[in-house]
Design a protein around this nucleic acid. Structure first.
Lengths: 361, 361
DNA sequence: AACCTCTGGTGACACGTGTCAACGCTTCCA
DNA sequence: TGGAAGCGTTGACACGTGTCACCAGAGGTT
């Protein structure tokens, strides 16, 4: 199929070269016997091959087929397929005022299953006829508008932006300003609330009445931590437990140990810590071992991520695992609503997240 | 500045609306008193404000300033700035035959410092006046051509593709077929060779004469492993050591332990293992602990990555750390050569990589 | 016969840019 | 004084697409 397309493309090129037009950037005075670079087929080529006008090609290929005979539709489609015709994004974007791309903004955070998340969302984006493009944000400092994102949006003029947590307030303002739809924001507290509550409830259920929440202390951004910590606090309040202690844990041995040494006098043992991350949980767990604490009876940790490394070390980490497609439900739903996809039921937090019981709780 | 631009944009819009043109997708019979969506400034607007022709604007903004008076150049630049003018990627791509984007193809592998890598390359891409766009490849099976990448390239028509190891042979063929330059491929054996040799030499230097190489056993791709393993083999040959054993390690406790149990009878102890990954090294190290092996005297492991988790656990992992900007030297060099950037000296492997001494060797 | 409707299809414009060939003007030289 | 040369600037075309308004003709109705 690909070979056929390539062949046709070459044939078309020679025909077009014969008609004497000038491809920009190609010297014309050279001998055109062997075209060094084959030119992509355009809708003119398709129209010519199908024996119809270019307008008809455009209509048919955009599925406005009601007003055409079945025969014509079929001829156009076959011609397009035979030539390997792909609509030029440039031409399309020019006339439409926006392109068919969706920008996926990835936050500057550790993300074990990032590839998985991107994969799932890419599939959904394609389902509504758009193309995914990934953008890594560098910092989410509230007052900094990302020059890079700004330029990307201004030049690509995407059909929409999907935020996984990488946009600052200024960025969001900017998008509104230039009229680029923000398909889904990360400000979906319910799922992060569910995670925090799941952690707190689990620790409590395993006999820990004194809780703490451990943030990541890092130059990276943390778009989710506060919402989860709030949920832990809310749980404690609701259950009549003492308010949880908040700490920030660096990903380095002596630093983590120091944090632990500083928190123990204030909380006592046994202590259960809900962690932002599997890495944070591992760091605290290792620190506890060096301090001679009994894990999990005196000191329990639970992470979030279900990272492979947590299941390989000893003691095996208790953590919160996400069903990636399900946990992205609100984004998928927004995509469908915004771009005419199939309506889906939005999943509950219970369907999206589950505890993976390890040996640290 | 942003506020100024937004203001001017609005003003321009009203002027243009007055001239009676029709923005596609906008109903014209509505009252245009409050424009719901502001229209980006075009080169026509800039030309009007600067009192020159559109051709002049185009020339000046593309830095063809030799043939214009300093006054004209200045007027055009000020006008563009005042209007917040950004060249339309669509219009530009249409006339140029290619866009100003560079697609960064990320392999389907674990990548702790991916964000860092993308950040560095993005900076370099911008230095030559192009825009980075990230593409996650899903699988690199040799016979599979990525439908997603293909569509991206056909529609976006990027100025080039940078491969971090995500392209299959068919993908590369496809790029050549459609005339999209492959700026840099991952097939740079020298750096991976350097890594493997560094690992082997280090283990040997710490007293290990019997070596092994541990691949990652995973559904993910491994674009680099074979080159590194080959380097370990070459080192053994050169130094007169017995040929290294190759094993594939799953990222899960019992599986890793089983691999270790199967390899020990064939190699004996002491044994030094060069690992594809910090994760693989951690998995083997933990397995060794459960088998009662003395680390590092009986069993030594060295990883590659310098992942934070390896420095947090106990024993702290010995690993190979990369200086990200330096280790990307060949890609940066190719970018500069292909798109007229500043020439740089290509770094040696010694500058790019270094051993981080931990407690596992 | 005049008129309308419906079917199937197309002509032509607009989108915003890069660039070639040409322009008017000044200056210089024969 | 006539012509050549250089300088600064611009007119006009091409790129590939979507879509509005229109058209030709067949068939039906009054």
């Amino acid at each position: 199929m690909r070979a056929v397309a390539a062949l046709c493309r070459t044939v078309v090129t020679s025909v077009l070269t014969f008609s004497g037009d000038h491809v920009p950037g190609q010297p014309v005075n050279e001998e055109p016997a062997v075209p060094t670079r084959t030119r992509p087929a355009t809708s003119v080529d398709v129209a010519r091959l199908a024996g119809v006008s270019r307008a008809t090609v455009s209509h048919v290929l955009n599925n406005q087929v009601e007003r055409f005979s079945a025969d014509t539709v079929e001829r156009v489609r076959r011609a397009a397929l035979a030539l390997g015709y792909v609509r030029s994004a440039a031409g399309r974007a020019l006339v439409m005022g926006r392109s068919d791309f969706i920008v996926l903004v990835v936050p500057y955070t550790t993300f074990t299953n990032l590839q998985n998340v991107v994969e799932v969302l890419s599939g959904e984006i394609e389902k509504v006829g758009l193309s995914p493009v990934v953008h890594f944000s560098v910092s989410r400092a509230e007052n900094a508008t990302s020059k890079r994102l700004q330029h990307l949006v201004e030049t690509l003029r995407p059909a929409g932006v999907v935020d996984l947590g990488g946009l600052s307030g200024r960025d969001i303002e900017f998008l509104a300003e230039v009229g680029c739809p923000l398909v889904a924001e990360h400000e979906k507290p319910d799922f992060n609330t569910a995670i925090g509550e799941l952690q707190a409830r689990h620790l409590h259920g395993r006999g820990h009445g004194r809780l703490a929440y451990a943030f990541l202390s890092d130059e990276r951004d943390d778009p989710y931590g506060q919402m989860r910590a709030d949920a832990v606090t809310a749980y404690c309040e609701q259950e009549g437990l003492p308010a949880p202690l908040y700490v920030r844990v660096p990903l380095e041995r002596s630093g983590a140990r120091k944090v632990l040494e500083e928190m123990l006098p204030r909380t006592g043992t046994p202590l259960g810590v809900a962690c932002y991350n599997d890495l944070v949980a591992i760091a605290l767990g290792e620190a506890a071992k060096t301090l001679g604490l009994a894990v999990p009876s005196d000191f329990a940790v639970i992470g979030v991520e279900y990272a492979p490394v947590g299941q390989v070390i000893s003691p095996r980490l208790t953590t919160v695992a996400a069903d990636v497609p399900v946990s992205l439900g609100h984004i998928i739903q927004a995509l469908a609503k915004g771009y005419g996809g199939a309506e889906i039921r939005r999943a509950t937090p219970e369907e999206a997240f589950r505890i993976v019981q390890g040996e640290t709780t």
